[in-house]
Amino acid sequence: MTAGTRTDAPSATTGRAGAVVHVPLGTRAYDVHVGGGLLARSGELIAPLLDRPRVAVISDETVAALHLETLRAGLASHGIEMVALALPPGEATKSWPQFTRATEWLLEQKIERRDMVVALGGGVIGDLAGFAAAVLRRGVRFVQIPTSLLAQVDSSVGGKTGINAPQGKNLIGAFHQPALVLADTDVLDTLPRRDFLAGYGEVVKYGLLGDADFFDWLVAHGPGLLDPGAEADRIEAVRRSVAMKAEIVVRDETEQGDRALLNLGHTFCHALEAATGYSDRLLHGEGVAIGCALAFELSARLGLCAQEEPGRVRAHLREMGMKTDLADIPGPLPDARGLLGLMGQDKKVVQGKLRFILARGIGEAFVTGDVPDKAVLEVLDDALSMR
């Protein structure tokens, strides 16, 4: 170890098989593997973590039809038995009924405290299965195998788990770190274009909040990520996103300060998701992209960043073919005061006061609770007037 090297800082290694980002959280440290063919290698990578050669997999019906047998074969290659439950796809699954179904199924499978739960799916499955693992027998270990771009770069890393409530998104949950994350970039080829782009909303967020060089890299390479042949660039985009998230999580695991930066765009996004009923009218990553554009617009109007910055954000999102404005959301929306009211259920509310993640420029985000309602209403009114 060279002088000045921090042993508690995230580290990354890259090779022909992809990259590994280490998340150093003491006894709960884990690795995030990024690359192709990881489902086929799942047995090799998971076996060292097991007390007995058996895992319980929670997935959804769409993902299971595409990837469950590949996972089964990968596990079987190292003598690991698999039992599986496939839940309905979609955000509505992140609810008490399906959570109850999942936890009761795990108990029926006689999953013990030293066993392993595997979440095979996007953010919905990762959040729900992780929460089930967190509370089952007061905590069992779990592995995240994220199958969407959004889950690979964001929700699978950092230990946030949970379900939605009628009052808002992710209001019920626990911090429970995974034992391992396998982000197989090959599975991204099976994503519909809309889902891939929704995931990209979380990728670009990382450049906007703390890495202007990464944003510039995305401007140059982002459109090419849609090409299934762009394996090296896809691995790099996921690796850099994961490394940035890991660095922030290590500094602030339970979101007492810096980790709130990861919610850039999310205060607007969660209100828009609630307004659209957590439906296919607006995917989470689409809401993040629109929310980031609105956050930069609000920052510019408050004199925090240059007037050109919101335009740069929107220009890149449009070049990617993404939603950028409230006008891009189909169907009715509440008025500005209605949307502001929905923001009041956000987890970032402190003593009844909203906290926003704003920016002094691309790559320079910060958290503040000092935002006048009037300024937020003006931004929302103007955005709604364009519908």
Rank of each mutant, 00 (worst) to 15 (best):
residue 1 M to A: 15
residue 10 P to S: 05
residue 12 A to N: 09
residue 20 V to S: 02
residue 22 H to L: 01
residue 25 L to H: 05
residue 27 T to P: 03
residue 29 A to R: 06
residue 35 G to D: 08
residue 35 G to Q: 08
residue 36 G to A: 14
residue 38 L to Q: 03
residue 40 A to F: 02
residue 40 A to R: 12
residue 49 L to W: 13
residue 56 A to E: 10
residue 66 L to F: 13
residue 67 H to D: 08
residue 67 H to F: 06
residue 72 R to C: 03
residue 72 R to H: 10
residue 77 S to F: 09
residue 79 G to T: 04
residue 88 P to R: 04
residue 89 P to V: 00
residue 90 G to I: 01
residue 96 W to K: 08
residue 97 P to T: 06
residue 98 Q to E: 13
residue 100 T to N: 14
residue 101 R to S: 13
residue 102 A to R: 00
residue 106 L to P: 05
residue 114 R to F: 09
residue 118 V to R: 07
residue 121 G to W: 01
residue 130 G to F: 03
residue 134 A to Q: 08
residue 136 L to I: 11
residue 139 G to M: 14
residue 158 G to D: 08
residue 160 K to D: 02
residue 165 A to Q: 10
residue 166 P to W: 01
residue 173 G to V: 00
residue 173 G to I: 00
residue 177 Q to W: 00
residue 185 T to G: 02
residue 191 L to S: 04
residue 197 L to W: 07
residue 199 G to E: 10
residue 200 Y to Q: 10
residue 204 V to S: 09
residue 209 L to T: 06
residue 210 G to R: 00
residue 212 A to T: 13
residue 212 A to R: 15
residue 217 W to G: 00
residue 219 V to H: 13
residue 220 A to N: 15
residue 225 L to A: 10
residue 229 G to E: 13
residue 230 A to F: 08
residue 233 D to A: 14
residue 234 R to Y: 12
residue 237 A to V: 04
residue 238 V to I: 14
residue 238 V to D: 01
residue 240 R to P: 01
residue 241 S to T: 07
residue 242 V to F: 08
residue 243 A to F: 12
residue 243 A to V: 04
residue 251 R to W: 10
residue 255 E to H: 10
residue 258 D to K: 13
residue 265 G to C: 07
residue 269 C to P: 00
residue 272 L to Y: 09
residue 286 E to R: 04
residue 286 E to H: 05
residue 286 E to Y: 05
residue 296 F to R: 09
residue 299 S to L: 11
residue 300 A to K: 12
residue 306 A to R: 10
residue 310 P to W: 03
residue 313 V to M: 05
residue 313 V to P: 01
residue 314 R to Y: 03
residue 314 R to M: 05
residue 322 M to Q: 00
residue 323 K to W: 05
residue 323 K to V: 09
residue 326 L to E: 01
residue 329 I to D: 00
residue 334 P to L: 03
residue 337 R to G: 09
residue 337 R to I: 11
residue 338 G to N: 07
residue 348 K to E: 07
residue 352 G to N: 14
residue 353 K to T: 15
residue 354 L to F: 04
residue 354 L to Q: 08
residue 355 R to Y: 10
residue 358 L to F: 02
residue 360 R to M: 07
residue 361 G to I: 05
residue 363 G to K: 12
residue 370 D to L: 11
residue 372 P to T: 05
residue 378 E to R: 15
residue 382 D to W: 02
residue 384 L to M: 03
